[in-house]
Amino acid sequence: MPTANYGEKVMTLVFWLAAFLITAILAVIIGYIVVKGFSVLSLDFIFTPPSRAGKEGGISTTIVSTLYLVLGSLLIAVPVGVASAVYLEEYARKNSRFAYIVNLTAETLAGIPSIVFGLFGFVFFVIFLGWGWSILSGAMTMAIMILPTITRTSQEAILAVPREYRENSLALGASKWQTIRKIVLPSALPGIATGIILSIGRAVGETAALLLTAGSSLGMPMSITDPARTMAVHLYILAMEGISLERAFGTAFVIIVLILIINYAAHYGMRRLSALGR
């Protein structure tokens, strides 16, 4: 049938175009950012602190602030998220009321817009606890924001570990905790890593919530109680207040490169880690 053949060709083209579009969009965005920000991109841009509100100088302090905030929020959210996932999947009884409520809470938290977390963080950490605009307030707020993602992805990763592994381990006389530590968590590691990488992306890109909780100080943060401006916040202020569009684009480029590096490092690190268990 010629019509069937024709339809086949058209649809193949449609699917190909859809797939091509993704690559094209990425290429255009990165190309645009590079072209626009090229004039400011240099090693100096990365290694010198901003001056005159960012009109001159580089973005070194915002890179450091971003890394502190990401690291801080992960340090809080990863242990809590993975531990709660272990509880929900390994210890809680099926049909447990508590597990149901925790799952529901995690889902609801995941759906709350970041600015609402920002508002909460501002009122609770910054004002009520008196931590001020600081790395600490910002990291706590970000931790709450990424917690549902980490919990959910860890739960899925733990659930995907074959039941046979657990039974075999227990039948060898291992305790439940030994089984989780030596078999379940190592097997779930790649899945958990995916959740962490997603969270890092979210934290690096977050603007509004951090503006409210970590502040927008351009100084180099020397302790967790110092305020800090992340690259995303810096980009926002540079563009919004018309300080320097070139520098905004330069900052955007560094953000993208940083995310790529973090993703690659996380993948590589996880592969090394699970290879060690092998």
């Binding site: 592994y165 075999n168 381990s169 227990l170 039948a171 060898l172 006389g173 699970s274 092998r278």
Partner: peptide, 29 residues
């Protein structure tokens, strides 16, 4: 369970080396 071992229906080697699979039980104990 140390005294009564069990072999299951589905062959299931742990995702680790051959050596570590066999050493798993003794290490646990």
């Amino acid at each position: 369970r140390k005294k009564v071992g069990m072999v299951f229906q589905k062959p299931s080697a742990f995702p680790m080396s051959i050596y570590e699979n066999v050493a798993y039980g003794p290490r646990i104990h």
